[in-house]
């Protein structure tokens, strides 16, 4: 321990669990947002909670490198990425509602089903692991599922990119929550680089949003600028 807090071990675990549940709830909250700007805000909140969770794990597991992870997450995912996304939204004039392919009610029911499924899945598979690991894993899997669900139920490419990054938050939650995972910092840096490319790739996602297809022949028929504006 770097410095001792006057807390019981059970409390330490509870706080870790509360943080991971918070990350998962942010995933839900994201699904409920009707405006893109709010989706980005919720994403930032999720990333902030994830950074907190990483820092808390650094304290609990006494792993200093997890602290580095927390800092990277905080700077890159909670500050820079939301700022960039906001800029794109403003620049491309996307501050309208998210377009969904499944209604909010049904989308939420599906999301709840997925969270339940991930619990049912993780608990029987990880009977040998500790309680903390199991619950963190269940939460992390839920976040991954919710991210995937959001990719499927959203029409706009930008929502899908955000959903992809939320999904990645779930993976990170699993990585920081499991004790003794090697190369955590390196992995997270690599994932960040990947995500940067993803954000740049938004341009290409626009093609898909616009035409709902990967067929590049569509590009030959339209002028670039008008359709960028209109989505």
């Amino acid at each position: 321990m770097i410095f001792a807090l006057p807390l019981e071990p059970a409390t330490l675990a509870d706080i870790a669990q509360a943080l991971s549940v918070g990350v998962m709830l942010c995933g839900f909250w994201m699904l409920l947002q009707r405006r893109l700007v709010n989706v980005v805000r919720t994403y930032a909140a999720q990333a902030f909670l994830l950074a907190l969770a990483a820092a808390w794990q650094a304290y609990v597991q006494d792993e200093r490198q997890l602290l580095t992870t927390a800092v990277i997450i905080l700077v890159a995912k909670a500050l820079i990425v939301p700022a960039v996304l906001n800029r794109i939204i403003v620049k491309l004039d996307l501050r309208r509602s998210v377009a969904t392919s499944v209604g909010f009610g049904r989308g939420l029911v599906g999301a709840m089903g997925l969270v339940g499924f991930s619990m049912l899945l993780v608990f029987p598979v990880t009977t040998t692991s500790g309680a903390l690991t199991r619950e963190t894993l269940a939460m992390a899997l839920s976040v991954v599922f919710l991210g995937f669900w959001m990719i499927i139920t959203r029409n706009r490419a930008i929502s899908q990119v955000i959903a992809l990054m939320a999904l990645e938050n779930g993976v990170l939650l699993a990585v920081v929550g499991v004790k003794g995972m090697p190369l955590v910092v390196e992995m997270i840096t690599a994932v960040l680089v990947l995500l940067t490319f993803m954000v740049f790739g938004i341009f290409f996602f626009h093609i898909r949003t616009r035409f709902d297809s990967l067929d590049v022949r569509n590009l030959e028929r339209v002028h670039i600028i008008p359709w960028l504006r209109s989505s």
Binding site: S101, F117, F148, W149, I151, I152, N155, R208, D212, S213, L214
Partner: peptide, 14 residues
């Protein structure tokens, strides 16, 4: 469409 492919992948994973 791409969303259908993603749906199939996700469904299969589940």
């Amino acid at each position: 469409t791409i969303r259908h492919y993603l749906m199939i992948m996700f469904g299969l994973t589940l």
